[in-house]
Structures are given as structure tokens and as C-alpha cells.
Design a protein around this nucleic acid. Sequence first.
DNA 1: TTTTGTTATTAAACACTGTTCAATTAAATT
DNA 2: AATTTAATTGAACAGTGTTTAATAACAAAA
Lengths: 205, 205
Amino acid sequence: MGIAERKEREKEELREQILTAAKTLFLKKGVEKTSIRNIADLIEYSPGSIYHYFKDKDEIFYALHQGGFQQLMSKMVVINDLPHPLERLKAMGSIYVHFALENPDMYDLMFIKEAPLDHVARTKALDWNEGEATFKFLRSTLRECMAQGYFQGHDEEALSFLIWSTVHGMVSLSIRRRCEVVLADRQDTIVKDGLDAFFNILDRL
Amino acid sequence: MGIAERKEREKEELREQILTAAKTLFLKKGVEKTSIRNIADLIEYSPGSIYHYFKDKDEIFYALHQGGFQQLMSKMVVINDLPHPLERLKAMGSIYVHFALENPDMYDLMFIKEAPLDHVARTKALDWNEGEATFKFLRSTLRECMAQGYFQGHDEEALSFLIWSTVHGMVSLSIRRRCEVVLADRQDTIVKDGLDAFFNILDRL
DNA sequence: TTTTGTTATTAAACACTGTTCAATTAAATT
DNA sequence: AATTTAATTGAACAGTGTTTAATAACAAAA
């Protein structure tokens, strides 16, 4: 039955086409200003066709945001070369921040926008695998730090959340332009300076 | 010329009516799902009328978000009773977090959504008075801490940004539902636990 | 009191949006 | 060649923010 497989392959191909078109447009204009009709125009199909491949607009951006997590995770692998867990933890922070500042729209989709999580909530899928894997990676690294005597007396889960919040807070204030006016003079360096200050504190903890 | 004044007053009244209608709807349905027509319906005017009082939709929500800052600032005054600057700093953090969790939609508008800052950018008003005042308040409190010997060797501005980022990170991850699945079992307490862990670190710094 | 000028208000229109659906076309199976 | 299945379409629906020409309301001047 090679035909069914070819059809399956063709269907997957168009699905991929829709996704890359959506990504191109969203990186250029943002999620809100990327319409189904825009995507349809770019791949030269009618708007209605899109709905044979995706349930709705949110599903498209949920699929896109999954790719973002793969991208982020692939950048994380380099930390395996670092033997010291605290160095690994700090390297993770650097990679996270750099990823966010280099791919602000993707980061926005992954951690700030409500669209992908709305989709998770609506499909009653109680898990958000992409985000969970990333958080578990942080937790296990922190656990290794604690096993070596760092951060004694702290709750591992709460501290993981606190660390995540700190880096997320810095980049999301930057991405959503809350620094531009409040810290206008050192706009470009404030996130890096904040991260350095954070690392300093982690070292002294 | 009492007539001109009365007209001015009437105009201001309708402006206020639009604002309260917008606030009611936005707290019930969110910014995106609150339309100009919804607001017009509620105050029993035509949609076009709104545009005699506000340039566009963003200007309405910019005005609303200003009210949010007044609300937040009014809650901050109680810290004046605390003589110790570090206690004041921690109290500020608590108030900030509580405000965010009790008024998630307003916090969203003030610190997460792009709408109000888009308005700032478009009107070429290089300052965002509301946000700046709040940040300056944090900075001055931190400066007092440092004057009393706390946080030695740190850059005051960078540390202010780091502290702001930490509390903002926690509440924004919570508001945008990134905790729900990743930390499902302690959803309700994780922000409080994170804040406690943060205070612990500040004490030991 | 009537005319003039200003301001407020409106309905209608424009160009969009996400989404649904009946009709059409295309392709594979019988 | 006829039938079934799947893909694609254009049109429609109900909504969006915003603009604009016409109208109504009202104060000031003649």
C-alpha cells in the first residue's frame, strides 16, 4: 500500500509548508498580525484549506512554539561538557537569556503569550511537555548542586522556580519593552549586568 | 464663562464613563475581547463617539493602566511605617506580588501586555511616568539598604533591576499560566514559597 | 428671534479578522 | 466506467478597529 503512504507524506509536506509560512510571517509581523489569509496567500492555497491541517490558529502557533523548545534544548546540550554543576547551572542561565534575546518573538510565544497555553487548556491536555522538560532539566541541575553542598536549607522546587523566574523576569521585561524607558541609558547591557549580578549572588550563596 | 466650564466638565464625565465601562468589560473578558462596540453599547453611545474622546483603543487602555499604577502606589505607602530599609524592601516585594495576584488582569496590562507601551512608543513620549516612578521607588529603598551596609559591592541599578525581575518573573509566569502544568501540585503556594526563598536569600546577602 | 458657527453624535462604510460549510474538483478503489 | 473518498475552494457569517460625511444640538452673534 504505497499510495496511502505517499498521500500521508504529501499531507505532512503541506502541513510543514503551512508551518514554515506561519513562522516566516510571525517572525516578521508578530502572531496577532499574522492572519490565516496571509498564510494561505503565501503558500498559494485558499484560507479554508488551512483548516484541513490545523484545528484553528492557536494549534498552528502551538506547533510552532514546540519547535522553539527543540531549538532551546539543542543549545543546552553544550553544558554537558562542564563537570561542575554550579557552572552548568550558570551556563544554563546564560544560554536561556541569550536564546530569549536572540529570538524574542519565539521566546514570547513560548513563555509570555497566552495562545499556546490556551490551546493546552482547551484540548484538556493537562501536560505541557515542552515546558515541563525544560523545567525538569533545571531542577535536576539544581539537585546536583545541592548534592554537592550548595544552596543548603533551601527547598529544591521553590528555588528552581525562583531561578527560572529571575531569568524569565529579566528577559520578559526587556522583550516587552519595560526597560526601554525606565533604564534607557543602559538598555543594551542591563540584562547582561543583571545576569552577572545574579551569578555573583549564586556564587556567594 | 461658566458654560465652557460646564461643557468641559460634561466632556470629562463622558470620558470617565468610557473608562469605567472599558474597565468593567476588560476585567470581565480581557483586553482583546473587549471591543469598542462593547464599550459603546454599555454606555449607550455609538461606536464612533468613542473616537471623540480617545484617539484609538490603545489610548483607552493606556489611561486604564495609569489607574493601576495609582492603585499599586497607594498600597505601597504603608511601608513608611517600617523603620528598617531591608524590611521596607521586603514589604515592597510582598505588596507587589499580592497586587499582581489579586489584580492579574491589571498587572498584565501594566507589565506584560504590549498595548500601553505601544502607545508610549507611538506618541513619541519617551517617558513612561507610571513605570518610572515605581522603579525609582524601588531604587531609593535599595539605596537606603546599601547606605546601611547591605548588598555591598553590588551595582545599585543592576541589583534593582534584578529584584524587580525576580518578583515580576514569578508573578508573570503564574499569571500567564506557565506554573499550572509544570508545578501543578503546588500551584497556589509556589509564588509565595518562591518569594519566601527570595527573602531568605536577601537576608543572607 | 433668527442666523451663524462650533461641537457632539450618528449611521454607514471600509478593509480587515477567524471560522464554517456546501459545492466542486481530484484521485483512488471497485 | 462507476463509485467512493479526500482535498480544495469560494462564499458567507459574525465579528473587529477605524474613518467619514451627514445630522443634530447648542451657544454666540446679529
